[in-house]
Design a protein around this nucleic acid. Sequence first.
DNA 1: ATGGTCGGCAACCGA
Length: 276
Amino acid sequence: MPANVAAGSGTLRIATWNINSVRLRLPLLSDLVMQLDPDVLCLQETKCPDEHFPHEGVAALGFTHRLARGMKGYNGVAILSKRPILLRTEDPDWCLKGDCRHLGVAVDAPGGPIELHNFYIPAGGDIPDREKNPKFGHKLDFVAEATAWSAARPAKRSIMVGDLNIAPLEHDVWSHRQLLDVVSHTPIEVDALNGWQKAGGWHDALRHFVPADQKLYTWWSYRAADWRASDRGRRLDHVWVSPDLAGGLARHVVLKDARGWVKASDHVPVMVELAT
DNA sequence: ATGGTCGGCAACCGA
C-alpha cells in the first residue's frame, strides 16, 4: 500500500444511468462496464417487474449484489454492485404511491459503509402548472417530500444519484431562455431542486469537475433528427455527495458516446470516482 | 409555431 493511503481507505466508482428498459438494453450494460468499470451502478426506468429482472445477465458482468424495485411497464430502479449492499427499509414510500422511484442502500465501501440513494424523480408531464397537470404537481410534491427528508437528516458519508428530471443551471440546458417554460427547467422546479440540495448540504459532484459556465448535458431527446448535430441536451441526471465526501472526488465521466450506441437510451451514463 | 421518437404492450400512456 502506498504510504499516502491510510489503512481502510480506497476508491469507489459510482455510476448512474436511466436505461429506459433494462431488458431491451441489457447488452449495452457490457459496453458500459468496459468503459466505466463501476463498483456500483444505479439504474432508472428499468420498466421491469422484479420477477422478470435479468439477474443472470447482470451477474455475468460481475455484479454479484443486486437489488431491484420495479413494476409493470413504468418506472423502476435497481442497484447493481460488486461490493455488498444492504437494503435500507426506513426510507419513505414517496407520495405514498408505491411507484418504484427510489432505492436506498448501505454500500460496504473501503473506509466504512456509505449510504447510497438512487432516485427517479417524476418527469412531470408537459404543462408546468399543478392545477392543469397533476403530473407536475406530483413532481413538485415528490421534491418537497425529499427536501423535508434531507433536512431532517443531514447527509454524512452519503451519495445521491439518479434521474432527477430537472436541469438547474443555465448551462445545464442548450438554451436557458427557450427552456424557461419547459418542464425540467422552469424556475419553480429549479428553486425546488436547489432547495433540496441546500437542505441536505449536498455537493453537486458533476459541477465539482465542470465549471458552471460550461455546457453539460446527460440527455438528448429521441425526437431530434440528429441529436449530435443539434446538441439540444439537458443535464437531468445528477450525482450529489455529502460534504465529508466532497474532498475525495477524484474523477468523473459523462459517457456521451453512449447516446450514439445502437438502440441507445435517451440518457447517457454518468460516473463519479471518489476516495472513501 | 409545430411536431418530431421511443418503450411497453397491445390502445394509448408516459417520457
